[in-house]
Design a protein around this nucleic acid. Structure first.
Lengths: 194, 194
DNA sequence: CCGTGCGGTTAACGGCCGTTTACGTGCACT
DNA sequence: AGTGCACGTAAACGGCCGTTAACCGCACGG
């Protein structure tokens, strides 16, 4: 069978494990999932995971830092590609909505399992999250310059909460959900900030 | 010292334990808190808790059912006391905002630790939550009758997410936060639903 | 006084679960 | 062909932690 040489199967196994673990962590919580459960989810069993990860904590750490990095980088690039702040804000909203709808498990894990991280991992993740929030805060303040920074920050967190609610509902199909959440997010900012 | 006879100290101990446990569960997660930690938080140590609760699971169960009951009952009574749907919706928002601001730990625990409940407890809590959501859905659909029920339900979940974001920010003082969240919640509904 | 029971203590048990160890197997590369 | 590494397995270890046991003091109604 034809193989693509520049995309080794090596990466695939790690990612497969991370994806399965994310799903399980989201559903049962970090401590509610055993190493054997994760192994079983990818067809290998138990301690075989230690060929790919140093520890269970390392799996969570890698998972959360990669989410945070993807969120931050995506947000930054959308803002950079926009001319006016209003457009940038719409793009940020769309970006976050798409992310939450496409990877609900990752969103859930990131929200619920920060406390289970190792101290250095938690510091790293929090730093990335802070920078992501700052991207939002700056954009919000450019669209409404008279709003104070703490208010903008609180508003940003509120919008995150709104968009991240997606894993708990999911009654609509993807596109309807995307436009609903985007509209609500935009309206909550436009309607509540002076 | 003068004691009030109709408010026995007996209830106080249980409630004191539940409050301390809620704080700890919110910060470290259910499994991240030991029975000894909870005891230490109220000045007694370890297994003494079993004089007041059947098990650690029972503590979480009682905590979550009582939150859900309070939320539901408060929501129902606000709606019942309102004449027009617009007023009812504003009251619902205010009620939920006040609850989230006054008991951030309880909100956090309810969101994060549903998975740690015993099966019968989880059924009970979910049933209460469903009824609470229905109160919101009905009110939303009375204010905008042309919106479909699944859309209203998704919008309600989104607003919960928005308001429940409070424990993660808290940069503003209570009153500013309350008006900000209320305005954002109202705007997200008014601005996004036809 | 005196038992009774409530609320507390410390010590021990027992299971779950992350991690380590020792061991196999097959593909890749001289 | 043979060497070695990548990847798996099964079994044993070890600690943490919820729960139980055994024991104790003190308030309080007869």
């Amino acid at each position: 069978m034809d193989r693509v040489p520049d995309e080794p199967a090596k990466q695939t196994r790690r990612d497969q494990i991370l994806a399965a673990a994310a799903e399980l962590f989201a559903r049962h919580g970090f401590h509610g999932v055993g190493i054997d459960d994760i192994g079983a989810a990818v067809g290998i069993s138990g301690p075989a995971l230690y060929r790919h990860f140093r520890s269970k904590d390392a799996m969570l750490g890698e998972m959360l830092t990669s989410i945070s990095e993807r969120l931050l980088e995506g947000g930054q690039s959308r803002v950079a590609a926009s001319n006016d702040p209003e457009h940038a804000l719409r793009e940020l909203i769309r970006w976050h909505v798409d992310f939450a709808l496409d990877d609900p498990a990752l969103i859930t894990v990131q929200i619920r399992n920060l406390a289970n991280l190792t101290d250095p991992d938690r510091r790293r993740v929090r730093a990335l999250q802070r920078r992501y929030v700052e991207v939002w805060v700056e954009t919000i303040r450019k669209t409404s310059p008279e709003v104070e920074e703490p208010t903008a920050r609180a508003a940003a967190h509120a919008v995150f909460g709104l968009i991240n609610s997606t894993p708990h509902s999911a009654h609509l199909d993807r596109d309807q959900m995307a436009t609903l959440l985007s509209q609500m997010a935009l309206a909550s900012l436009a309607g509540a900030l002076p």
